[in-house]
């Protein structure tokens, strides 16, 4: 088979249809592991911000996790707050800047372990903010320990024989819980394990920004992301492993859309 030289742009007449990185990313390089799903999710979020023309009208609040290093890479006004507190910080920001899209970027450890009260009560208040949870079922930043969202049987560094319901307790299905709350206007769960799912997730991210801006309350956008390092699997097997473990517990799709009736955002 003939290998094509891909080191330089093509010589023949051609149109560039996609850049290496979204324009709101200052730099391609990052230190996240091979096969990590988080940069993919962040790419989607940044692309949607541009599509929705929120580039100069948004503030990001990052929690603590591997994704936190993206504060240096994302060309948006941003702060990195204390572990778990992002929805509280977002509340203060949104109340003082109601016209600005305020969004949090958190992991499952940040949101469901350390900061469960913050996300629940911010949803209860119906704050018009967007909260992203990058869910990989482990504390990736510290090397792969159990979080509140680790699934039963999942092997982590501190559930080495697998998470046991009787001993370690059961995972928290936060999106399902929030979807029952009147203050949460949009709740959805996407994934970045393949291109189709990525496209579906992109559409959900659009709504996750639009609904709070339209006053429908808090949007929780959970995104399943691969963490092959934290799962102790080869990078190339991360996607498959994820859908066999987390994917079986955390079903994909929209769980709630209070703004569906007023939706002029036809599938584009």
């Amino acid at each position: 088979m003939r290998a094509i030289d891909t080191s330089l742009p093509p010589q023949r007449p051609a149109t560039k249809t996609a850049e290496f990185k979204p324009s709101l990313l200052l730099k391609e390089d990052h230190h996240l592991c091979a096969g990590c799903g988080e940069p993919v999710a962040i790419r989607l979020i940044l692309e949607v911000i541009e599509e929705l023309e929120l580039t100069q009208n948004n503030v990001c609040i990052l929690g603590h996790g591997c994704y936190g290093s993206f504060i240096m890479l994302m060309d948006v006004d941003s702060t990195l707050c204390l572990h778990g507190r992002a929805p509280a910080v977002a509340t203060g920001m949104k109340r003082m800047r109601p016209g600005v899209a305020i969004w949090t970027l958190q992991g499952d450890g940040d949101m469901t372990s350390e900061g469960l009260a913050e996300i629940m009560q911010t949803a209860a208040r119906g704050e018009d903010v967007t909260c992203f949870m990058l869910n990989n079922g482990v504390f990736g930043d510290t090397g792969g320990q159990m979080t509140a969202s680790s699934v039963i049987g999942q092997r982590t560094k501190n559930t080495i024989e697998g998470r046991d319901a009787g001993y370690h307790g059961n995972p928290i299905q936060l999106a399902e819980i929030l979807s029952q709350m009147p203050g949460a206007g949009y709740v959805a769960r996407g994934s970045v394990h393949n291109a189709a799912s990525i496209n579906a997730t992109r559409k959900m991210i659009r709504k996750a920004f639009q609904r709070p801006m339209d006053g429908h309350g808090l949007a929780l956008m959970e995104i399943l992301t691969m963490c092959p390092t934290g799962w102790f699997v080869p990078p190339g097997e991360g996607a498959e492993y994820m859908m066999e473990s987390l994917g079986k517990v955390y079903g994909l799709g929209e769980l709630k859309d209070a703004g569906a009736a007023s939706d002029d955002d036809s599938d584009d």
């Binding site: 093509p10 051609a14 290496f20 091979a34 799903g37 790419r43």
Partner: peptide
Amino acid sequence: PDFVFEIYRY
């Protein structure tokens, strides 16, 4: 995840 691709259409 590492943003190594750029896409062209002939």
